[in-house]
């Protein structure tokens, strides 16, 4: 009997990344994570358009965090950009994940957003692992497992000639 460090369940449960249940669950997780961000973004767009003033205000109050002066400086000097990019970014990240297109690239931005939420909210009353941190881990999971390849458009996009000519694009897709 061989021991597989990469997939210790292979003998008993056949939990392969190409397996039906894995594909089903990763696609489901991706769509729900996408909906979470899409809902957050599109409701901001409906209410405030591209002038989400709470964005820069939120960053300006992030003093004394592990990110040092970066968020405060962003809030002070990039306010106009953040007002537009928070609702637009959340919506596009959510859309990307739901349809499964450019999932890894979208998830990198998702990690960026969630890092700021996790550090900025600083609601650690029940420990460091809170819902913001779990959201951050979800986006990292999307990147590591390339979930766009499971019932997502990335599975189709990766078969195009462009991606075959430039295989590194798969690091942004998938």
């Amino acid at each position: 009997m061989s021991y597989q460090a990469a997939n210790p369940l292979a003998d008993e449960f056949e939990l392969e990344l190409g397996g039906a249940w894995t594909a089903y669950w990763l696609a489901f997780l991706r769509v729900v994570t996408g909906w979470w961000f899409f809902h957050a973004g599109v409701t901001k767009l409906i209410e405030d358009g591209l002038a989400y003033t709470y964005g820069p205000a939120y960053l300006r109050q992030m003093t004394g965090t592990a990110l040092g002066p970066i968020p405060v400086l962003m809030g002070e000097h990039l306010g106009w950009l953040i007002q537009a990019m928070v609702p637009l970014g959340e919506t596009l990240i959510g859309l990307g994940l739901m349809v499964g297109a450019l999932v890894r690239l979208a998830s990198v931005f998702g990690v960026f957003f969630m890092s700021l939420f996790w550090i900025g909210n600083a609601e650690f009353g029940h420990g460091l692992v809170n819902s913001d941190f779990m959201g951050l881990l979800l986006f990292m999971t999307m990147i590591v497992l390339a979930t766009g390849r499971y019932y997502g458009l990335d599975a189709i996009i990766e078969k195009t000639k462009l991606v075959k000519r430039h295989p590194k694009l798969r690091y942004l897709l998938g």
Binding site: T65, V111, L128
Partner: peptide, 15 residues
């Protein structure tokens, strides 16, 4: 908590 969150962010930065 700044130290603890900083360590996690450092891990993310490595990735």
């Amino acid at each position: 908590p700044t130290l603890r969150t900083g360590l996690v962010l450092a891990g993310i930065l490595v990735l």
